[in-house]
């Protein structure tokens, strides 16, 4: 698969941009870098972006992927946007709990609840 192909599926629901992943395993360094760049472009595409990252179908996530999410979080906050995460597998959620990133991110059980939480 060529590296230039998008690693994300992006859809818009009103003012909310919802992103999900093409890969079940978000481990590869090159893919993670690309995902980070694509998310940054989305955040920069409009002021006060409302971004929902949906982890449906993601089975594995490495600490490098967490790093990319932390960078996106900072970018969203810096542009007065809002970021929500949803549909995180219970095992992956443990990774967020262990690293205490469940306190940094606003995480919702479902995309529907996440969408309803935007202000």
């Amino acid at each position: 698969m060529p590296p230039s192909e998008s690693r994300l599926k992006v859809k818009r629901d009103g003012s909310i941009i919802e992103v999900s992943f093409r890969d079940r395993n978000i481990l590869d360094e090159a893919n993670i870098q690309q995902i980070g760049e694509e998310l940054r472009a989305i955040v920069d595409s409009e002021p006060k972006c409302k971004l929902l990252i949906n982890f449906m179908d993601v089975d594995h996530l490495s600490s490098a992927a967490l790093g990319a999410l932390i960078t996106v979080h900072a970018r969203v906050r810096g542009t007065q946007g809002q970021l929500r995460l949803s549909n995180i597998d219970p095992q992956i959620y443990q990774v967020f709990v262990i690293t205490k990133l469940n306190k940094m991110f606003e995480i919702h059980e479902t995309a529907e609840k996440a969408r309803a939480s935007f202000r």
């Binding site: 967490l66 900072a74 205490k100």
Partner: peptide, 17 residues
């Protein structure tokens, strides 16, 4: 990586996990 001054660093969580 969980202490306040490091929590926003994008790396350093592998060994902890």
């Amino acid at each position: 990586p969980t202490v306040e001054e490091h929590v926003e660093l994008p790396s350093g969580r592998g060994l902890m996990l």
